[in-house]
Structures are given as structure tokens and as C-alpha cells.
């Protein structure tokens, strides 16, 4: 089985978030970037588990600029066999999806596994769009996946519970928690990643359907005011005049 795993690069959750150029651009100064956790922990590792159980090949694909190499090498160090980087500034989910779908169409893949969403924009778009562009089956929020005889059975999270679905391959899966156990690379994997193929593909220049107009950080939490239990009148006054909730 040949599996394609799209991986994203996202800021580490401990990064300080700041915007520049009149709040139209995310400042990358001193930001540590990592592989998107759901891509790494669930999508990539599930692909590796399937390969180890059934044989095959795991290929990662990333839409990004040359400074993404560390993230791609990490995927190779964890165990992916080869990698592609689509040379583009990944700002629009549709344009990224077109590039990934173009590659998947001709790559002979049986399965595409993405993480359910990236932890920066949380837009949850690429998996579904890739499936639509390929006209493949798509199952989102998959927490369990079995594949036998070309048939796949997936358990996916739904409101208040889970749903089990059967579908045929090829398909696109969006992975969520519990699909696989996260793996830490080791030094041998890191060494091996040096010589695994990383091919740079020119972007075909798909239309960008969205652009960022501006960013805004959430308001800071307001200071908490304490009122003595003996002073209910003051509490009522504050709720009425300041909080304006009564």
C-alpha cells in the first residue's frame, strides 16, 4: 500500500504570537516551528503502522519554502521513506489542496492521511478539499482505521459519540487522537533521514481563493474584582453598572 501524508509546519504552542505590517502579517521572529502535531502524532504514525503491518511505502508531502526542511527531515527521521516539498508560500488552503491533489493523482497512492487540522489556523480544510479534487472517498476525524482486502473500516468521532463507516480505497482520511501512538525519532533515524530522497516540486500556481485581511489578538482577560460577602449591594451595583449583565 502506498500512503501519502501531507504535513504542515506550525508555530510551537509556546511561541509568542505577534503581528506586523499593520496586523496583516504573522511575525516569525524568534518563533520555533514544529511539525503540525496531528500530522505527526496520528497521521504519519498511522501510515507507518500500516506499512509495518502490510508492507508498502510512506511518502510525506509539504507545501512550503526551503526553510521547512527541518520539519520534513523529522518526518523522514520518524520513518517516512521519501518526501516531496511543493515550493510555495502556503497561505491558502485551496491552493495547497490543488497542489497535493495534483501530486496524489499521478503518484499511485491508495490512501492519503492528513491530521484533522493544523494547530495554527485550525481551518480543517485541506483533507476534505484534496478528497473532492481527487473525487476520492473522505472520512474525517478518524480515531480508528482497519484496512483489509482493499476495504477500509474507520471509526470517526461524531457529536456525542462515534460512528463506524466502511469505504473503498483510494480515500482521504483526516486523523484525530487515538488513531496511532506518537513516536519519537532516534539518532539512527535522524542519520538515515540525511540520505532519504527529498524532491522539490515546482508549484503549478493554483489560484489562491483567500488572503488574510488582518489579524487581531484576543482581548486580555479583565482583572477580577473581589466583593466582600457582606456587601451584596456593591456586587449588584457592579453587575448592573460595570458588567452590565443585570
Amino acid at each position: 500500500m502506498k500512503i501519502l501524508v501531507p504535513i504542515s509546519k506550525v508555530p510551537d504552542t509556546t511561541s509568542k504570537i505577534a503581528f506586523v505590517d499593520n496586523n496583516t502579517k504573522f511575525s516569525t521572529d524568534n518563533v520555533q516551528f514544529i511539525m503540525n502535531p496531528t500530522d505527526e502524532w496520528y497521521a504519519l504514525t498511522k501510515a507507518l503502522e500500516l506499512k509495518e503491518a502490510q508492507g508498502g511505502e510512506v511518502v510525506v508531502i509539504h507545501a512550503g519554502l526551503a526553510d521547512s526542511e527541518q520539519v520534513i527531515r523529522k518526518a523522514l527521521a520518524i520513518g517516512a521513506d521519501s518526501a516531496f516539498r511543493i515550493d510555495m508560500d502556503p497561505t491558502d488552503a485551496y491552493a495547497i489542496s490543488v497542489e497535493i491533489a495534483n501530486h496524489a493523482k499521478t503518484g499511485g497512492y491508495d490512501l492519503v492521511i492528513t491530521g484533522k487540522e493544523t494547530i495554527d489556523y485550525n481551518s480543517f480544510e485541506v483533507g476534505g478539499m484534496v478528497a473532492e479534487l481527487l473525487d476520492w472517498n473522505a472520512v474525517a476525524l478518524v480515531s480508528k482505521l482497519d484496512i483489509a482486502g482493499g476495504k477500509a473500516t474507520a471509526t470517526r468521532d461524531i457529536e456525542g459519540g462515534t460512528e463506524t463507516v466502511e469505504f473503498s480505497l483510494p480515500a482521504v482520511i483526516c486523523a484525530t487522537k487515538d488513531l496511532a501512538a506518537a513516536r519519537i525519532p532516534n539518532m539512527k533515524g535522524i542519520m538515515a533521514s540525511r540520505t532519504k530522497p527529498l524532491t522539490v516540486l515546482a508549484a503549478t500556481g493554483a489560484d489562491k481563493l483567500t488572503s488574510i485581511a488582518s489579524y487581531q489578538t484576543p482581548e486580555k482577560a479583565k482583572e477580577c474584582k473581589y466583593v466582600s460577602v457582606d456587601n451584596v449591594a456593591e456586587l449588584v451595583r457592579l453587575l448592573h453598572e460595570e458588567a452590565k449583565v443585570i
Partner: peptide, 17 residues
């Protein structure tokens, strides 16, 4: 190098986990 940083991230993840 990027490899050095990956090595650091690897060991740090192991330590934290």
C-alpha cells in the same frame, strides 16, 4: 544545523515524556 535542532527536539521530547 537543522539536524542539531532535530536531535535536541528528539531528546527533549523523550525527556519530557
Amino acid at each position: 544545523t537543522p539536524e542539531h535542532k532535530l536531535i535536541r527536539e528528539t531528546v527533549r521530547s523523550y525527556v519530557k515524556e
